[in-house]
Design a protein around this nucleic acid. Structure first.
Lengths: 149, 149
DNA sequence: ATGGGGCTTCCTACGATGGGAAGGTCAAGG
DNA sequence: CCTTGACCTTCCCATCGTAGGAAGCCCCAT
């Protein structure tokens, strides 16, 4: 199988297959006399594994570890689980971060009239020096025109 | 104020201030005779605006638009609100994506014994194709090795 | 006047991906 | 046989926001 066929079969682009090879994520493919890379069904299997892990948000480094365990017949499933749960924690951290942004911005937007006048609490908040963050406890008082929704 | 002081006062690194200037997000700073950039309190104000918008996850392009409205005294708050809500929608899309990953992976992890045995449903799932992928419309032929087992 | 810290520009890198150019190869059809 | 077009190869560049570093100039205090 040439790289194009392997790409189609695995869902990993030819570009990325070469990149993975170059960075050592996958072993160098065999070559034809003309220098074409050749792939077996096994290789495509591995590429699909990689593709699937990418879809789950694993970094290439994370996949490197997963592949190591995958190939290791004497692995312990606890190691796989640990890796997976660490990644879940990463994802949840990121989600919380984005959710903070979204809810803050949403609250600001809901306080904005959204009409033809220029005054806008969103811009007002953006130009205030300190972060109002979660101001259920009214500590500083000075810059506190912000309310959570 | 030199760039270092402006950086400290605004929370934007000197590196990034130069970058923002280079890419036209902010106007070129004035210079001393020796070529040092000089910043006013107004400039720091603007930099803090940028910093705050970055904290809310706006891209530099998004900030460019926000800055345009900020500077435009005849802006309409509706435009600001539209921009903000579009960004909220982006954030929520990303959140949903990450949440999908996290919950999928979490379900797999909960099915994993996490012991010293090698068998692991996480790896098993990763090595199976994401979905039956439309095996009804068999276009490419030949390579149809999906769903083993 | 010397030393240390700040400033300048320019180059590099990251992570994962895509785009494209220049040139070699293969298979099919005239 | 030769052309054509699809495929392959390598190499370079771009993204986006941020950071690190080198070489060299500037400013202030000692």
């Amino acid at each position: 199988m040439n790289i194009g066929a392997a790409a189609k079969a695995s869902g990993v682009s030819a570009k990325m297959i070469r990149y993975y090879e170059e960075t050592g994520l996958i072993p160098p493919a065999g070559r034809t006399a003309a220098g074409y890379r050749v792939y077996s069904d096994q290789d495509v299997h591995m590429l699909r594994f990689i593709r699937r892990a990418r879809d789950l948000g694993f970094s290439v480094e994370g996949i490197r570890e997963l592949l190591g365990l995958w190939r290791d017949q004497s692995r312990q499933s606890a190691d796989v689980k640990r890796l997976a749960l660490a990644h879940v924690a990463d994802l949840r951290r990121k989600i919380a971060e984005l959710e903070d942004m979204a809810s803050t911005l949403e609250a600001l937007a809901s306080a904005c009239h959204g009409n033809d006048r220029p005054d806008c609490p969103i811009l007002s908040e953006l130009e205030t020096p300190c972060k109002p963050t979660d101001s259920t406890t009214d500590r500083s008082g000075a810059i506190n025109r912000f309310r959570r929704g």
